[in-house]
Amino acid sequence: MERVTERLIQFDLARTTVRELNQYLHQQLPAESTPGGIPQLAILNPNGQHNIAVGVTVPAKIDIQGNAGYFIGGMNKLADLVVHGHVGWSVAENIMSGSLRVKGSASECAAASGHGGLVVIEGDASSRCGISMKGCDIVVGGDVGHMSAFMAQAGSLVICGDAGPNLGDSLYEAVIYVRGTIHSLGTDAQEEPLQASDIEHLTAILKRAEFDYSPQEFKRVASAKTLYHWHVDAGAKY
């Protein structure tokens, strides 16, 4: 750890372990984060390492300068993270609040089971993006892979590119917006007309995510709710 200025703290992961970094973030960062100012952290040489900046619970601005590995920014609360590169599996897993922006692309399970906050992937997200999301908002600048938003319970997934196979399979109350093409919808997912509330939400979320698209370019996908209750005719199948 190196204090560059009063507010800027630098960690070089070529010289410090991820464990030391995370212990600092959990034990010492809260004292740095005061109503008078939000600390800034620069994390250098991530070199694809896993678990960087997991479990931060206070306001902070954290920049990860390069490609990072699995579970980056998991369980994040209040902090705003930017990864200046690509990330591996399960970025922002179970995010509670705050934000995480990936300048590159993300591998599988981006923002899986996220409860709140905003996750922006500027490039593509891979399969299972937003799987089981529970209230966060996800904006993907490019495409998403198969089984994205599988069993998504609440929140929104905004896809500015194309969606892969089985989008929104077994959706609950989460809503998906797709600007490009949809390879196929999963079981119980259906395309629906945009409502006034969708336009309002999309306008706000695209602005926050810094994408210059018109809400009218998107299609809405939501649950047809045919799986919510047992249907007696389904009994004949077994």
Binding site: N47, Q49, G66, G69, G88
Partner: peptide, 16 residues
């Protein structure tokens, strides 16, 4: 995993 490639020369300019 990417971390096994991070040491390679020119990796920051590679198409990943």
């Amino acid at each position: 995993e990417y971390r096994a490639l991070a040491h390679l020369p020119g990796i920051n300019q590679a198409r990943i």
